[in-house]
């Protein structure tokens, strides 16, 4: 009985520390759901398409300029 009392006393002494411990074990929240259901690929595809559009625009400008430069010579 006395041993049990001692045990519970030590447990209570550590009680305030428990949330802290739990927080330390808890992982920072990451977008794992997006990854598991494959939606992240949609984001990648959209971002890549946006950049592709910009690149095509730049290539177009580049070609037009080259044509003008050729005409000028």
């Amino acid at each position: 009985m006395q041993q049990l009392q001692k045990l519970s006393f030590t447990l209570f002494a550590f009680l305030p520390g428990i949330p802290l411990l739990a927080q330390m074990r808890e992982k920072p929240e990451m977008a794992d759901l997006m990854r598991s259901n494959g939606k992240i690929y949609v984001v990648v595809a959209i971002a890549a398409l946006v950049f592709l559009g910009i690149v095509l625009y730049l290539i177009n400008l580049d070609r037009r300029l080259r044509k003008l430069e050729k005409d000028d010579k």
């Binding site: 690929y41 990648v44 890549a48 950049f51």
Partner: peptide, 11 residues
């Protein structure tokens, strides 16, 4: 390189 960044930056 920018395409590489977009793909690996997210994945």
């Amino acid at each position: 390189l920018v395409f590489y960044t977009i793909i690996w930056g997210f994945l």
